[in-house]
Design a protein around this nucleic acid. Structure first.
Length: 396
DNA sequence: TCTGGGGTCCTAGGACCC
DNA sequence: TCTGGGGTCCTAGGACCC
């Protein structure tokens, strides 16, 4: 699923997923503000969102914003079960489905016109089927690319359907605030706003070079392409994972070195267990820290060869922790985490034959990479060196 | 008046190499 | 011989997403 000449890509996104499941299963919660927690808001119903409650917000703040909200603990089994049930509806709707997360998926309905009707009709039926078979509200965006379909579903929420016809992309995109674009978060939007760029249309009026100078190479090019509807989602070839991580929030009380070592031991154990279960090994151990002033730091060490052994990983983690102790004592630690990355066998390579050698080679490689990006409709390709470039996600 | 746990990707600088 | 152009790998930090 990536690009189509017609609007046949559906993005289906369950509305306030966890909270909707709670309302479905407990009639007393229907019509009331519901927050799924505890501690941090994992999801909130639209009644709670109306009061300004947002995912990721601390429970205390959420309660202040919406004192009448009912806070319920997360029931993960119920959510996976609901997600599975919705996936069945997806599978009955389209031959090509890409599940993007627990509550959303992309569907390609190309070529189904004679059997199932227009994409709009298919989308409407999908919404009805999910409602009838699973009992949950779902919003669908329809467009020629994933990215536009995703933005469209975001605009149509909750419980809506929005079709952006082929050729209508720019009319749809240009009035939108830049922050609506997937991948443009608060920081990027802030940089743009500071320069008077509020909408996607504002961005479209700028040269790519200007956007690159504001946002950096990758983000600038991406936003420029999107603003001119020249962005074609990534090629996804079974994206392999690229890291394993685990972290633990420690609260605000101070921790002794011994306590931290114990936490580190638990983290290393958890991560390596999962790595061994997955049959993966990694070379780089990253220690993640967060401090009481909410600043962060990372310290990393790369081993000579990949491993998934608890002792090897833990030894490296302990050494990083020891070196970081002065910083920890100065700033007060509130979170300790580990990430193991640089995994073995994670990316394939594509060899390019270049027409020139010598000083012009680098430029030729740039052009070749651009051409491949164009042809495959991907921005997942990166320059690797003077003689090669590679696809992320193990392109074969 | 700050938030948990799990991820992905990009950028920049330093050490070192041809 | 010197300088510049073109690399690799590692480390650290930042932004973003669900």
């Amino acid at each position: 699923v990536f690009v189509s000449r017609e609007a046949t890509i559906l993005h289906a996104d369950l509305d306030a997923f966890f909270a909707s499941v709670e309302q479905r299963d407990d009639p007393r919660l229907r019509g009331r503000p519901v927050i799924v927690g505890p501690g941090v808001v994992l999801a909130s119903s639209y009644e709670a969102k109306a009061h300004g409650v947002r995912s990721g917000m601390g429970a205390g703040k959420a309660r202040r914003l919406c004192p009448e909200a009912v806070v319920v603990p997360a029931r993960w089994e119920a959510y996976s079960e609901a997600s599975r049930a919705v996936s069945e509806v997806f599978a009955d709707t389209a031959p090509v489905v890409e599940k993007a997360s627990i509550d959303e998926a992309f569907l390609d309905v190309r070529g189904l016109e004679r059997i199932s009707g227009t994409p709009e009709q298919i989308a409407a039926r999908l919404r009805r089927d999910v409602r009838e078979r699973v009992g949950l509200p779902i919003t669908v965006g329809v467009a020629t690319t994933r990215l536009i379909a995703k933005i469209a579903s975001g605009e149509a929420k909750p419980d809506g359907l929005l079709v952006i016809p082929a050729g209508g992309e720019l009319d749809f995109l240009h009035p939108l605030p830049v922050g609506r674009v997937w991948g443009v978060g608060p920081s990027t939007a802030g940089k743009l706003n500071d320069r008077g760029i509020a909408t996607v249309g504002d961005a479209a009026r700028l040269d790519e070079a200007v956007l690159v100078s504001i946002l950096g190479r990758a983000a600038g090019r991406r936003l420029h392409a999107i603003a001119h509807n020249r962005h074609h989602g990534r090629v996804r070839t079974r994206r392999g994972r690229r890291s394993f991580g685990s972290q633990s929030a420690l609260g605000r009380s101070s921790r002794s070195r011994e306590e931290l070592e114990a936490v580190a031991g638990g983290l290393a154990d958890r991560v390596t267990r999962r790595m061994r279960a997955a049959g993966r090994a990694g070379r780089t151990v990253v220690l993640r820290l967060r401090f009481s002033d909410y600043s962060r730091a990372t310290r990393s060490h790369t081993l000579p060869r990949p491993t998934a052994q608890t002792t090897a990983i833990l030894t490296a983690l302990r050494a990083l922790l020891a070196a970081a102790m002065p910083m920890i004592e100065a700033r007060g630690i509130t979170l300790l985490g580990i990430t193991v990355t640089n995994l073995e066998g994670e990316r394939g390579a594509l060899q390019l034959e270049l027409p020139v050698d010598g000083p012009g080679r680098s430029h030729a490689l740039d052009e070749a990479v651009d051409e491949v990006r164009e042809r495959f409709g991907t921005d997942a390709m990166t320059r690797g060196g003077s003689r090669h470039a590679s696809f992320q996600h193990g392109f074969e």
